[in-house]
């Protein structure tokens, strides 16, 4: 075949890459960053949630929490394996950082990530108890759902496939959280939940990043992003708002 095309043009037109041998350097860097951000968030999320398992009010709740910890760790593993194909030392990566580390509850870091890992800012805040963890998981679960829909279109095929497999499991985590909140409301915990809701809502919202990010355009050209931060956040606000409505709660103004 005599057709020639620059790989950048191929990507800009929606082309898909399939192995580490043919990714351009800047694409490689942004792809690894995206994967590291996902892996770190899953590892930090799972580590934080692991401490909460025993606070579950009953066996069913503890099973649900343990399952979420297991599956989020598995999702980190799946994506870390793809990073490994690019040379990352996967065994060392899993242990190079204390994933349970958290800042103070009242730290105000906006969307800034920590110095030493790429977890979303929201995973730097500590959970205060069972109800708080369930509410955080409900809001963040919905955010992950919105992000997953964008991630499933990512132009690196092995990663897109991993995300397509991960998405329904993550969606189930959000459903478990919704069931958990419903049970807590029935048990008369509405006030604690409302406090947690006002704490987590702005922090999860901030995890979508800056509303006008110059970066988005170059990521879009590489097929690593499709929607803008603002679009994703708006989608989350609408979807999470609906879920809260179903539960008789409402999003903070």
């Amino acid at each position: 075949m005599s057709e020639e095309m620059r790989i950048e043009d191929y990507l800009a037109k929606g082309g898909v890459l399939s192995n580490p041998a043919n990714v351009p350097p800047r694409y490689r860097a942004e792809l690894l960053k995206l994967m590291a951000s996902f892996v770190d968030s899953e590892l930090a999320g799972a580590a934080g949630f692991a401490d909460i398992i025993n606070q579950g009010p009953g066996i069913k709740e503890r099973i649900a929490a343990a399952r979420i910890v297991l599956e989020k760790t598995d999702h980190a593993d799946r994506v870390l394996r793809i990073m490994g194909e690019f040379g990352a030392d996967t065994a060392r990566y899993a242990n190079h950082h204390p994933w349970t580390a958290r800042l103070a509850r009242d730290a105000d870091i906006g969307a800034t990530r920590g110095e030493h890992d790429m977890r979303l800012a929201v995973f730097n805040y500590p959970l205060t108890g069972w109800a708080d963890a369930v509410m955080m998981n409900l809001l963040m679960g919905r955010a992950v759902g919105v992000q997953m829909a964008d991630f499933a279109l990512v132009s690196y095929q092995p990663l897109a496939e991993a995300f397509r497999a991960i998405a329904p499991v993550e969606a189930r985590h959000a459903e478990l959280a919704e069931e958990g909140v419903a049970r807590l409301i029935a048990a008369g915990e509405t006030e604690t939940l409302t406090d947690s809701l006002s704490y987590w809502w702005p922090r999860v919202a901030a995890s979508f990043g800056q509303m006008s990010s110059p970066k988005t355009e170059s990521l879009k050209a590489m097929g690593l992003r499709h929607a803008s931060n603002a679009e994703l956040k708006a989608r989350w606000e609408a979807e999470a708002g609906q879920v809260l409505g179903r539960l008789g709660l409402s999003a903070p103004a």
Binding site: P25, A36, M118
Partner: peptide, 27 residues
């Protein structure tokens, strides 16, 4: 670009075209 800052993930890879650097860790 960077992610782990621990020499583990390779996100921050670049190429030295001139001069010399010392890489203290490389995994």
């Amino acid at each position: 670009p960077y992610a782990c800052k621990a020499g583990v993930c390779s996100t921050c890879r670049c190429r030295v075209l001139e001069g010399e650097v010392e890489m203290v860790a490389n995994h």
